[in-house]
Amino acid sequence: MSDRRDEDDEALGWGGDDDPTLAPVKPAGAAAASPTAARRRSGRTVEEEADEAEDLLAEKDLAAAEKETAQLSSAALIAYGVLGGVYLLYTIGWVISFTRVEIADIVTFGTVTDLVARTLAIAASPLWFISALLLTQKKDIRWTFIWLVIGVLVLVPWPFLLGGK
């Protein structure tokens, strides 16, 4: 926000009113000194001081809000796309490795746990991807990428790549 408050913008000020008790309430965090002291020190009116403090605060708030809702850079978008693609391929790899299993005729504890593990393995890649995005969204974007890259290393579908089941 570059529009500084206009000196002539009388609608928003009380020009000429020197009574310090009528000064606009300063937002918290503005100059701590009493209005009269501030005026004596700098030679500026209370109103100007208050305006300035208000402007500063507004600008700070806006900068923080802009940072929070900042758009992703195109490089980050492309990286997300590539990583998302890798996770998708991993998921497909795990699905294919699941389809290679021959379901045994006799159902035992072992065969059931095997199927459970394979189902979980299919779910692992999308779960990791979504969780990494969700849990790091309030942190710096590089944390998101660090976790996504760790996932790419951990979730490689070796059973599929090695050709076994």
């Binding site: 795990w94 593990a117 692992a124 951990v154 059973p159």
Partner: peptide
């Protein structure tokens, strides 16, 4: 889920 992945690996 990751345990299942590593176990299958």
């Amino acid at each position: 889920a990751v345990v299942a992945v590593i176990s299958l690996d």
